[in-house]
Nucleic acid binder design. Structure first.
Lengths: 248, 248
DNA sequence: CGTCGGCTTGATTGTGCTCAACCCGGGTGG
DNA sequence: CCACCCGGGTTGAGCACAATCAAGCCGACG
């Protein structure tokens, strides 16, 4: 038995916090053994660039802890985030030689990495992994399309409210709580990164956050700690259907 | 031998115009036989709704001819296109019960359809189809992310120029011509649909089209027929890297 | 001939951007 | 210990670009 302090560097796949959602979630024990022998962990500090658009890809993998962002930059410096990678999300592209977008650590991030080529071979021989990857990619495509509605048609206020709702809801899922009533969480993004996510300037983000605070729709403790007194009230400001998934 | 006039309704998969790009592009003859026996063609007129968001999905398939659009509508009527489906693109979602978005025929459209359940089974037993579908989905995700940069950060002028460049380039691929120099094509979308694509109003679309025409970057013959005298000049207005994929 | 839909053009408004000053908390060095 | 700086954030004033409201054009079609 290993009595050393448990770090991610020696976590068994069976104990992995993202085991139930990641690309390996439908693997049988024997398949998991293969992945276990291929994997390595790597951590990045907040703000570090994990890879640049155009880089040759050697690895693919999953986000285990923390938040990473996919971003695109124009020559004149305008920047748009095009993907937000949360724990269990897949990073990299089997079948592509070079990265299409920058990947940046928004918070401290831990990745579970596989060499690309062996992983590609594994996909071809392991339908459980291939089908899970397809499912995850389709989910990401749906999310990207929701995001397009936000970018193309929502007002600054609606964008901020939508973003807060997304983060709050995701946080609730992780904590196995309902997304309703009073909710608290830590923003994983700076004002600047929020602006890149939402297609706004950081000044507009700041102003709209202040406005929501002034109106009592959110409470701010420090700069990152958020409380939503009433989730339904916030949802009213997102512009989305409120009656999407009624339960009771 | 069937001597009736050849219509799509009895086209053999081997003669299919999208054979080389569609989800079936890597199928062996025996796999193709299976698909051949499962498929049916259906046509829709321009403007018709192919399916509504929330509808139960019975079919999946490919666009054979014409152009379809995925759209999302907010309660107050704001609308954003979130996908543009061109010949060979895949329609529908294996593994989802209901459609997440409206699908609308932008022009007259012909689809090659398969019942969803048998197709899902086919995916699980046919890695050629599964891997091609994953590849296509990843390509679509990349396209969606380019689109997000356009929606979030580009000016109206850049949006229009980018859209024209996308359509021109796609058209060139279909005609196996280089995307350079003088190019001509028919716009597949109305001004209104362009506005939905680009996150603009139709007035702004119209104004920017007029501006590009006035400056000689495009020529308009009627409302839909476009000539680009010099593709490189138009590319300069898109805001994108001009030196992305140099050939010579 | 009149009407209708798709499109263009004009005048005005308003939202979010730009430029700029300032705040606040934390870390550093004299 | 205080002065200073630095990065991230907030707030303000003015402006510009695209939205809105409105009128008119053009070609198709009855």
């Amino acid at each position: 038995m290993n009595t050393a302090p448990r770090t991610l560097a020696n976590t068994d796949c069976g104990d992995c916090p993202i085991r139930y959602r990641a690309v390996c979630s439908r693997c049988e024990p024997d398949e998991l053994d293969i992945l276990d022998s291929m994997k390595s962990y790597k951590t990045y500090e907040a703000g570090q660039t994990i890879c640049w658009a155009g880089d040759h890809l050697q690895y693919v993998g999953s986000v285990v802890e923390g938040v990473a962002a996919l971003s695109q930059t124009m020559e004149d410096g305008r920047r748009q985030m095009v993907g937000l990678l949360l724990p269990s999300d897949f990073v990299g592209r089997p079948g592509r030689e070079t990265a299409p977008f920058d990947v940046i650590a928004a918070t401290d991030v831990t990745l579970c990495l596989f060499h690309k080529t062996p992983f590609e071979e594994l996909i071809n021989s392991t339908p459980t992994i291939a089908s899970r990857l397809l499912e995850m990619t389709l989910d990401e495509l749906d999310a990207a399309r929701e995001w397009m509605l936000l970018l193309g048609r929502k007002t600054a206020r609606e964008k901020i409210a939508s973003f807060l709702a997304i983060i709050a809801r995701r946080n609730a899922v992780l904590q196995r709580k309902p997304a309703a009533g009073r909710m608290e969480f830590i923003l994983p993004l700076s004002r600047d990164a929020m602006a890149d996510y939402l297609g706004l300037t950081l000044e507009t983000v700041s102003r709209q956050m202040s406005a929501l605070k002034r109106e009592g729709l959110i409470e701010l403790h420090g700069k990152r700690q958020i409380t939503i007194p009433d989730f339904a009230m916030l949802m009213n400001e997102t512009g989305d259907d409120t009656d999407g998934g009624m339960l009771s």
